[in-house]
């Protein structure tokens, strides 16, 4: 809930349930844009690691990874569920299914203080309403803080997830509304103002390693820490990605194309989403 960030990716709108967005991706595989995002994000997760999971597309991606290439991925939810193995997609981070299937359920102070801050989580998956060129995130307000045009849910677990996880994968729809030159509010520090920022702030994790969008995948430059477009999804033009970015977007010289969702990936994703829809 806290980390219900994907619910925020379209400020002011009601978020669709994961995978329910009917927008067809140009990928040609018959996948929707949300399905492409979930599949590509799931590929960022490595087997036998620990993942702090936000609700929405991050949760869809993490649960998908566990069903495909990462069966030993340990899912940690901020409700205190450690090693959750839900049979269906949870609607909230506190669904009973998460606790019932977990290796352990601990308190909220414990999950943040001991497990996250203690350095035991390899990767965090977050959404956002706004992202800037250094992958800093806003989930707090659109407009002025004191008189917001859109009041968003706020920080939840995100600031500490981004501070203390070994690395962070951000999943967000890409448009000039979300990819902004300047955040309206810095809820969560990614790479701050560039080289050395995380170290100066005492943030122990390495920060965002990838931003997965409906158009492609961006990664921080190893030196400048600025996001660089490294891959486009099939059928997405470079011009579209540039036009959907609120700053002059850097593009990798070896810009590649992501592999479209495979038959197995899509089948597993759709089974997962269908199971979630059959809740009582």
């Amino acid at each position: 809930m806290s980390v219900d960030h994907t619910a925020l990716s379209r400020p002011g709108d009601v978020a669709p349930l994961p995978g329910s967005a009917g927008v067809r991706s140009p990928a040609g595989s018959g996948a929707t844009t949300d399905e492409v995002m979930a599949v590509v994000a799931s590929r960022e997760l490595v087997d036998a690691t620990t993942c702090f999971v936000g609700i929405g597309i991050p949760s869809t991606a993490a649960n998908l990874a566990r069903r495909l290439h990462a069966p030993r991925l340990v899912l940690v939810y901020e409700s205190g569920a450690i090693g959750a193995k839900p049979g269906r997609l949870p609607l909230s981070i506190g669904d009973g299914e998460l606790a019932d299937s977990a290796d352990a359920v601990v308190s909220v102070p414990e999950v943040f203080n001991y497990w996250l801050q203690g350095g035991h989580i390899d990767v965090g998956m977050l959404g956002a309403a706004q992202v800037d060129r250094f992958a800093n995130l806003n989930t707090t307000v659109i407009g002025e803080y004191a008189s917001p045009s859109v009041r968003l849910p706020g920080a939840g677990g995100a600031p500490e997830i981004a501070a203390s996880c070994g690395e962070v994968v951000v999943v967000v729809h890409q448009s000039t509304r979300t990819f902004v030159n300047e955040l309206d509010f810095v809820t969560t520090v990614g790479h701050g103002d560039g080289p050395g920022a995380r170290e100066r702030l005492g943030l122990r994790g390495r920060g965002p390693s990838a931003v997965v969008t409906d158009l492609g995948v961006l990664r921080p430059d190893p030196v400048s820490r600025e996001l660089v477009l490294g891959a486009l999804h099939p059928g997405v033009s470079l011009d579209a990605a540039l036009a959907a970015t609120g700053w002059p977007l850097r593009v990798a010289p070896d810009l590649s194309t992501t592999a479209p969702p495979s038959h197995d990936e899509l089948a597993a994703l759709r089974a997962l989403v269908a199971a979630g829809a059959r809740r009582p």
Binding site: A7, V14, V150, P153, G154, G157
Partner: peptide, 21 residues
């Protein structure tokens, strides 16, 4: 006094937003 104000998995809290906005 809070840390995340939303309807989990659904969207905004409209009464909270109406009060703030």
């Amino acid at each position: 006094v809070f840390s995340w104000g939303g309807n989990p998995g659904v969207g905004s809290l409209h009464r909270l937003r109406d009060a703030l906005e």
